[in-house]
């Protein structure tokens, strides 16, 4: 039910304005490139708009996140054409910085150099789609296992397994890609 004085249409537009950046980030983290991420977000909004009267748009964060994750996984299930990496394709679109100044997760973040970031990116690209999605929702979105299970339509033990195996696989791949740095 919309708020008094605000129609569903207005609330939907507000959601598009307020949430697009966050949704692009999630989609980008799951699908691996910015052009596809934009398509995913656009399609997700288009799908939701068709059935906009069914949903409560006062707090649409969970709905939008779930829709974008599912749309991302749907896109990943389709046959994929070769996609240029973001570094060469649209460096202007997504800010690529060599260093991050300790945002978000703590002091360790500021110590990661760009070479390490590239290695991690390559390692994450090799993860199975569901492992990557679960890891993104857990670490980037900081969602609980219960919320992740809800978004991915899986059981909590399944989500735990995906995250655990994803981390194991990532650690192994990092050792292979940069043994001097990650062979701990």
């Amino acid at each position: 039910m919309p708020l008094v004085g605000q129609s569903t249409e207005e609330l939907f537009q507000k959601a598009v304005r307020d949430q697009t950046r966050r949704l692009l980030s999630i989609a980008r983290a799951i699908v691996g490139n910015s052009a596809t991420a934009e398509d995913v977000v656009q399609q997700a909004f288009a799908n939701l708009y068709q059935h906009r009267n069914r949903y409560d748009w006062r707090d649409p964060g969970g709905l939008l996140r779930r829709t974008v994750v599912n749309e991302s996984l749907r896109i990943l299930r389709q046959p994929r054409p070769a996609v240029l990496s973001d570094e060469t394709a649209d460096a202007d679109s997504f800010a690529v910085r060599s260093r991050v100044n300790g945002r978000g997760a703590g002091p360790l973040e500021g110590m990661i150099d760009s070479e390490t970031t590239q290695t991690v990116r390559r390692a994450i690209e090799r993860l199975p789609d569901h492992f990557r999605a679960a890891l993104v929702l857990c670490e980037y979105e900081q969602m609980s296992y219960v919320q992740i299970a809800d978004v991915l339509g899986a059981s909590i033990p399944q989500v735990k397994t995906w995250i655990h195996r994803g981390r194991r696989q990532l650690a192994q791949t990092l050792k292979e890609l940069a043994p001097d740095r990650w062979d701990a």
Binding site: S25, F94, G104, L108, I112
Partner: peptide
């Protein structure tokens, strides 16, 4: 931390 750095860079 490395993953978070990468995701933030891609934002």
């Amino acid at each position: 931390a490395a993953r978070l750095t990468m995701w933030h860079e891609d934002q």
